[in-house]
Amino acid sequence: MTYAKPLPVPDADSAHFWAGCRSHRLLLQRCRSCGTHRYPAGPVCPACRSRAVDWIEASGRATVFSWIVVRHPVPRDLYQDEVPYVVALVTLAEGPRMATNIIGCDPDAVTAGMAVEVVFREATAEIALPCFRPVLAGAR
């Protein structure tokens, strides 16, 4: 079955990130000069303007910063079977913020500050999307 929803188009800045997702590893850039983590991937560290960078594997832990529940599908044909779904901004343990989906959770049960962890969803053979699910109480 063809995947019709938007698929990321990796570029020279982001190829490493999406390759990491494909192998179910959440990779982040870390500035080699000042240690600042950054996401989305970019060519220059906005904190110190260095171009030197290392890629590190993130913990995959995050907290919910903000979220929405999409109830009206746009475009309809692509999302009518998905609604309601949750899009969230999550703050990664390493600092940067990511847009993602919260899955494995009633959309009405999402709360601010909720602890979540990364889980990869296969979209195609080449692309896996980093989504997040609630961390079960007591799990570590």
Binding site: K5, P6, L7, P8, V9, P10, D11, S14, Y39, P40, S66, W67, I68, V70, V74, P75, Y79, E82, Y85, V87, L89, M98, A99, T100, N101, A123, I127, L129, C131
Partner: peptide, 24 residues
């Protein structure tokens, strides 16, 4: 919808329209 550039970090999660952007 092609998710090039910065859009590759948003649209694949069904985060597409301005109402969706600003509801956040």
């Amino acid at each position: 919808m092609s998710a090039h550039g910065i859009t590759q970090y948003t649209a694949p999660f069904g985060w597409i329209t301005y109402p969706q952007a600003m509801a956040m």
